[in-house]
Amino acid sequence: MTGENILMAARYPFLPEAREFISRNIDLSLESLEKTGSEAALKRAVERVKNALIFKEVKVTALDELNYVREMLSFPIAIILVSMIMNEYIRRMYALGESRGAYRRMLNESDETLLYIGEKMGIRGVPDNENTIRVKIPTYLKLAYSFHAPHWKLVNRAVNNGYVLMGKTEYARLIQVEVNNYVYEKTLEPVPAEAVPNSFKRAVEEIIEVWNRLETGKASRIPLREREDTPPCIDRIIKRMENGENASHFERLVVATFMIARNRSVGEIIEFFSKQPDYKYSVTKYQVEHLAGIRGGGKKYSVPSCRTILTNGLCYPDEYCKGINHPLRYGERNAAGEPRVS
């Protein structure tokens, strides 16, 4: 591995290079981690998670990069710590923090490097003319469907011969989604409690303490409920709206699209919104009908994805959220409906 590559693996520790470097040079079994002088890496791992919780972004400085062994090692350790905590919110925040940090750094990379990272993450990009990059449609769909803004919709994209064209920034956004997915999936893997060194347990406590501090003053954690249809994020907004609390535009969008997806009638939804302090029948009716696709070209708005809800600070996951990427999947990962025929 060249020096430059090593620095890059430190900057983007989710790259296979980082994994290879570690497995070639360091014994990553839990028992030996304590002995390999991984003290510093453990400390940095805690910092990673704290960064994610506090700043919603894991920052990597030039100095961190120079400490490349510590840096690369801290990433898998941070994942172990997050898996140990077994808290859905922390899992999601950590994945978001890592992916956001990576996104920020990628924006400063050369086209060549960016394409290289994309390739390694399974998002092959082909340089097109004038600062544009082409990505295969299926790859694009896998990552972009979760963005809510209209310009991400396939119908609004430059599509040609199996590819979607985009700028560098957008390409980096797609990679960010994949990094998020990758990190999140990793934190779902269970860690055998017996094998965990004590120093790790202390690190976990430290993270939980920070988290508790951040949580004071906020709504208490959602207790595990009987499995219901309504995911906790939406349940929470509904409860607050029922108490007449004024909801933000985005919160209303989430609730309305969710109710539409659950086949509630426009009338029922308007009735529900009537408790809002600034309620106006005509305005609400117009907006709900718009979301339901009754107005405005017949486009029915979808419920925002978990990632969008999380980014808006409204994700309060419970155990039934585990592994899902969309609120409508709540409690039923990989579930499938009854098929029909054609």
Partner: peptide, 24 residues
């Protein structure tokens, strides 16, 4: 091959593209 794994959400996007729904 490459389209076989497109999920339901992705297929929804293909449908919107064909029906020209949600056009900006």
């Amino acid at each position: 091959e490459d389209f076989l794994n497109v999920t339901g959400e992705g297929r929804r996007e293909i449908v919107d593209y064909l029906l020209i729904q949600g056009l900006d």
